[in-house]
């Protein structure tokens, strides 16, 4: 499986963020999207997810399911955690598991939470969690449904040092299992063998 993008051009608010952008990532490797604020890192991820139109070029997941869009085969983790504060961590995760094509069960939620070190908050309402804990529950969402591509926008925001290390291990094992990761980040993620895509300075 391979993610290929060719000649991409994206505009936001009438301003051309970048054009002629091409890249290729094969299964088991990661692409770090770097660049200053406003360079278009988030817009690139949102375009890949299908939330933003591209002005030119295109992208495809070669070897993926031709019936589904790239976004429907990917986990998109944006700036917002997509957690409902009135629901418990388990209810949030079980819902996402069902909605994203996984198996919604308490065991699956517990296993995913355990991998981000939060098994003890499984029945806490999300509003009682700290910002870092919410982020970790959002990361656990990546684990409750199996999708071949992860699109991560600043995944380690609000995480403490130990949680960052744990998340690096999670990403590494996902890559070892044949997954593809595209991450926009300022912090080094510590992945071995990740290629870097540097977007230009903001105009």
């Amino acid at each position: 499986m391979r993610l290929r993008a060719w000649d991409l051009a994206i505009e936001r608010g009438g301003r051309r963020l970048f054009s002629g952008l091409s890249f290729e990532i094969s299964a088991g490797s990661a692409l770090i999207v770097a660049g200053p604020n406003g360079a278009g890192k988030s817009s690139l991820l949102r375009a890949l997810s299908g939330f933003l139109p591209v002005q030119a070029g295109g992208f495809a997941l070669e070897g993926g399911d031709p019936e589904r869009t790239l976004g429907e085969q990917a986990h998109y983790l944006g700036h917002a955690d997509a957690l409902k504060s009135a629901l418990t961590a388990n209810e949030n995760l079980a819902f996402w598991a069902g909605a994203l094509g996984g198996e919604p069960s308490r065991e699956a939620s517990r296993a995913a939470l355990a991998r981000v070190g939060l098994a003890h908050v499984i029945d806490f309402p999300a509003r009682a969690l700290s910002a870092g804990q919410k982020r970790r529950v959002a990361l656990a969402r990546l684990l409750v449904a199996d999708r071949p591509l992860w699109l991560l926008d600043e995944p380690t925001t609000a995480l403490d040092a130990a949680a960052q290390v744990a998340f690096t291990a999670i990403m590494q094992s996902y890559l070892d299992g044949g997954g593809i990761v595209v991450a926009a980040t300022h912090a080094p993620l510590g992945l071995s063998g990740a290629s870097v895509l540097r977007l230009g300075a903001a105009a």
């Binding site: 997810s49 939330f51 998109y76 997509a82 909605a99």
Partner: peptide, 14 residues
């Protein structure tokens, strides 16, 4: 929309 759930739902199985 505000908490990002809509982003995830748009690419969900429904």
């Amino acid at each position: 929309q505000d908490d990002g759930s809509l982003d995830v739902m748009m690419n969900g199985s429904l």
